[in-house]
Nucleic acid binder design. Structure first.
Lengths: 360, 360
DNA sequence: CTGAAAGCGCTAACAA
DNA sequence: TTGTTAGCGCTTTCAG
């Protein structure tokens, strides 16, 4: 009753049909015909028949035997964040073209969840990892490193661990943004960031601090607890902005913070850039099309994706030869895309703004 | 040289250590201790030791043996589209909690690519599929159906195939949008859609046609070739808008078309809603925060994700019992979220609208 | 040049 | 109650 037409062709079927051995078929299929000196005639017959019946080797059996799954584990912070989904989408495409599948998960930057995900991937025997590491997962990453599973981190890294990684010089981006704002005459620039201690955040903060120190202007750093819910964050930002009316410009360390910020600014009825100039990290449809358009520190997403996957695939290829390859630790550069949100308007309004400032 | 400390514990190791048989360990681990009448004492000893050494069964071997991989194949149109990435992220989370991994790919609505992806997933022996079907993949989907692999489609479906699916009543959304615009006094409403013939697009068009027919006003449908690149689409839309100056309102059938539309409108220097009112399908940060905020036909993303994964997991659970379950074909309802982009500005009402919006 | 055969690690009949 | 053992489907020596 239950034995339907489950006639999945096996390698033994095709060997039997062709009256050759299983090994012959396997060898031909794995491109080892030449090196095993199998006659071209036989090789061709095999290929032709395999083609004809549409035989596909069972990947599970193959994986069990070879220990390779051709699956890459992708651990990102949040696949619903355009920055990550764009990079993920580019990585996925490249990987597929080279015969690798992607299995992915979002950590929401949660340490426990990250650990859990890595161990699940380990159980799945992924061939390699691409990880946007949450804080505190040194041990788990260290473990996969010790097992010599090819791994590339991106967006941030774990200073304690010798990993391949691709990051962006965040300090450079923030420094450029702050300098630009100062040049535009904004003198009281606040930096809105998360309460995360991770490298990329620290880096972005550093650029801000350096720029403001160089110009000897006071610094204001607002740290938002990322765990809070949407409304709480907006409320928090509204309170911050209201309590710092002397600020005439804001730099946001991530796209979602800026989105919350825009919501807060709108609710407060403030005008951009007249009341408050804005620069955000990460480009986004919203920032490009917003009125006024938002100045951003754009990350080179294509480059990030390309380098990450290239390094990983190279590593995957080389793994056989036990020669440890030099660590690839790329630091790419962001681009400041100046739009209206950070540009002083015509003389009239600028003066007015400055006057207000003096009055405070 | 090469044999490092690859001391991955095997089931035989733990059996040997405990001086019980491999079968006992396996049975206990698979919760079949009771039904195989293994003594509680032994079961506990096994569990304790497994815990102690942190033994994890090799999933590959397990899968090869059982034919189950606990992997779900997710085929979406574009993971970088917020609609899909949001749904994907919700699905992923639910699936993980129930012990399933997600392996995903974007088709960009390309038929060939879709076929290829499904066949790759088949080779990977995924336990189930969640598919946003591109046009023309009836055959491939039919095949996985014939193999009785649990499958759920969403966003659109293939009318020729009896599948489980979760879609949204697009006609209702567009109808509501058109009716709303007409009520606001916009009399010349155009519908901007893609050249796709898929169910969800056809459906959205139908709602537009029906609303305009009922009010006996002329229809204007603009079909954009989706294959074109970004700039080409924007140029196309600019030409269309310029050529239809009599139009006072536009309904976009997808979020990305509206984003292109906003770009086109901005470049043409038109004001929203005074020169042109706007309604788009799918909500998006951009639409919520744009000035003026864009009225949207919001899809119930949480509900979509929840229903999709529930149906699939149910199916996965039931597969053993050969009783064919009734087809789940859910039609959820969209919500028209009225914002300023579609509301006639009577004197003084603009401010009111903004206040309302802030209250949301 | 080709074929036999030993596993990869696990599950689950079937014995005992 | 527990142990033995036959595979799942494939790769890859190694002997012919």
């Amino acid at each position: 009753m239950s034995e339907k037409v489950k006639k999945r062709t096996l390698i033994s079927d095709i060997a039997a049909h062709l009256e050759v051995s299983i090994a012959t078929v396997s060898l031909v299929l794995n491109g080892k015909a030449k090196q095993s000196r199998i006659s071209d005639a036989v090789a061709e017959r095999v290929l032709a028949y395999v083609q004809e019946v549409g035989y596909k080797p069972n990947q599970l059996a193959k994986s069990l035997r070879t220990g390779k799954t051709h699956v890459i584990g992708l651990v990102v912070e949040d696949i619903a964040n355009p920055f990550f989904s764009t990079v993920a989408s580019l990585i996925e495409r490249q990987a597929f073209e080279r015969g690798y599948r992607i299995i992915y998960c979002s950590t929401n930057n949660d340490t426990e969840r990250s650990k859990q995900l890595i161990s699940m991937f380990r159980e799945q025997h992924v061939d390699g990892y691409i990880v946007v590491p949450a804080a505190g997962i040194e041990e788990q990453v260290g473990e996969i490193l010790r097992e010599h599973t090819p791994t590339v981190l991106f967006d941030r890294y774990l200073p304690a661990l010798p990993t391949h990684h691709v990051v962006v010089n965040g300090a450079q981006g923030t420094y450029a943004a702050a300098t630009h704002l100062l040049a535009q005459g904004f003198a009281n620039i606040a930096f809105v960031t998360t309460d995360s201690e991770q490298t990329q955040m620290q880096d972005r903060l550093d650029g801000y601090v350096r720029a403001l120190q160089e110009h000897q202007v006071p610094q204001t750093v607002k740290r938002v607890a990322v765990s809070k819910d949407r409304e709480a964050v907006i409320a928090d930002l509204m309170t911050f902005i209201e309590g710092h009316r002397q600020c005439d410009a804001l730099i946001f360390s991530t796209n979602y913070l800026c989105i919350y910020g825009l919501e807060a600014i709108t609710r407060l009825g403030l005008r951009i850039p007249d009341d408050l100039a804005l620069v955000s990290y990460d480009d986004h449809d919203l920032f490009r099309l917003y009125t006024p358009a938002i100045t951003v520190i754009a990350q080179p997403v294509e480059d990030i994706a390309k380098n990450v996957i290239d390094i990983l695939l190279e590593e995957l290829k080389q793994r056989a030869s036990e020669s440890p390859r030099p660590l690839q630790q790329l630091v790419l550069h962001p681009t400041l895309v100046v739009r209206q949100s950070s540009v002083r308007r015509a003389a009239g309004s600028a003066k007015k703004a400055r006057k207000q400032e003096a009055a405070n």
